[in-house]
Design a protein around this nucleic acid. Structure first.
Lengths: 242, 242
DNA sequence: GGTCATATTATGTATAGTCATAATGAGGGC
DNA sequence: GCCCTCATTATGACTATACATAATATGACC
């Protein structure tokens, strides 16, 4: 149609913004039917492709639902999903303006036992590496780490000196994960944990368990224990992905 | 899997899958330059638009970075981000196969005080509504809720009977949020909380604080206290958004 | 009046081009 | 050498079109 005067914001951005704000402001309530691609295309005086791309993006962000023949509908906000950023511990400590240090407590290779098998799956007769250590922020213990590494998947781990580089950091650089599962809960520090964290036994702690895979192959299982109120996870959410 | 629909996966999906696995498997390491759109288009014998859409999607997912003239590069996995699903408490309890009940403890309107002001911002002289209650799973207390609702933004809340519908559910249906911020930490139950949760004082609890806005306007601030080990947050992550 | 085939409609995928924009690199003038 | 200009290049935005696919609406037939 019109050889558009490309101003600062692209038409794509404009349509996206318009629809987004209409949905979020309630002008288009959940369940409402949005104009068809063709109607929007004529309304904005552009081609259907442009509108289609915008709607595809909104659908990907979960704001709308598209059904062939039926049309496009505003989705009811259902399961609230928040993007939780899990930072590298070293970066997190440095961001607080404190000096970082990792201290290795123990490190030993062994055969996988019954407990590991649940994570490692059926083909579970291989060796694993136990690594535990403490992350320090200044003089205070920031977090306690207990890790099991699947040596079948990551044989190189056997020869790494984890006193120099924390296992989390090394793994992240060496074998990036493709799938991760986190479990977060509160628990009381048992005697051993209390000693390592230098807090009273029974104090509340935040436990983050993370299991990571790389292409279906289990890589590592880590338990991070943070002393109670000292640590906070912060998750931020804005709909439609940015 | 062998349904009629699955006979031909779209070219879009194929290219996306190919690139994704090449990046995740390390064939294309971080920093590596990906073939140009035109090269990929000829390689897959398709138009540049198709390749471009795939790359746009991968860029949106944060797997790659695109720079004009320079080309497209594999991004170094940086801040690990996990998608944390925060479910509706009622749905969560029902999913456990337990009967759900919400019990209102207290409800009272008042003027915003200094503590609220931090959240409500400068224009803070309005009224707020304090609501507290308990979510039950069967006979056990599932979670304790303390909420502050900004009555300036949601005047209707004043007349709702929260003994019938939990404030969280009502707000979700009435004023969907556009931005939410979560803070998660562990803390010991104080005497009042211990009484309401029917657990010993000092037991570890998981505290989730959530503040939500709708178009820059603060809506509500809620503290959810879960008895320690009873509750787990589960976050799952797969790169490139599905 | 109920069932099946068909037309219609709206989205989904893909093409082959145009023009715009940003960054790089090469050459020219001082 | 250094700065500036200009051509090159790869992505970015968009068009107009085509055909595929899924779901609904319609109508013929028994």
């Amino acid at each position: 149609m019109s050889t558009k005067a490309a101003t600062q914001t692209s038409l794509h951005q404009k349509i996206l913004g318009d629809l987004e704000s209409q949905i979020l402001s309630g002008v288009l309530p959940p369940g409402a039917r949005i104009a068809t691609e063709l109607e929007l295309a004529t309304a904005y005086d552009c081609s259907r492709m442009t509108v289609s791309k915008v709607l595809t993006k909104l659908a990907g962000a979960g704001l709308i639902e598209r059904r062939r023949k039926a049309g496009t509908f505003v989705r009811r906000p259902q399961s609230q999903a928040a993007v939780l950023e899990i930072h590298d511990i070293r970066a997190e400590v440095l961001a607080l303006g404190q000096p970082y240090r990792f201290e290795l407590i123990e490190r030993k290779g062994r055969r996988a036992n019954r407990g590991d098998r649940e994570f490692l799956g059926t083909e579970a007769s291989g060796r694993v590496l136990d690594v535990s250590g403490r992350h320090f922020a200044g003089r205070k213990v920031f977090c306690l780490e207990e890790r099991v590494i699947n040596l079948t998947a990551v044989p190189d781990a056997e020869t790494v000196n984890f006193a120099e580089i924390s296992p989390g950091r090394w793994l992240l650089d060496t074998v990036p994960w493709t799938v991760a599962e986190h479990r977060i809960c509160a628990m009381a520090a048992d005697r051993a944990a209390a000693r390592d964290l230098a807090i009273p036994a029974g104090s509340p702690c935040l436990l983050i368990e993370r299991r990571t895979w790389r292409n279906e192959v289990p890589i590592t299982h880590v338990r991070l224990l943070y002393p109670g109120d000292a640590h906070q996870l912060v998750a931020h959410f804005t709909p439609s992905g940015r």
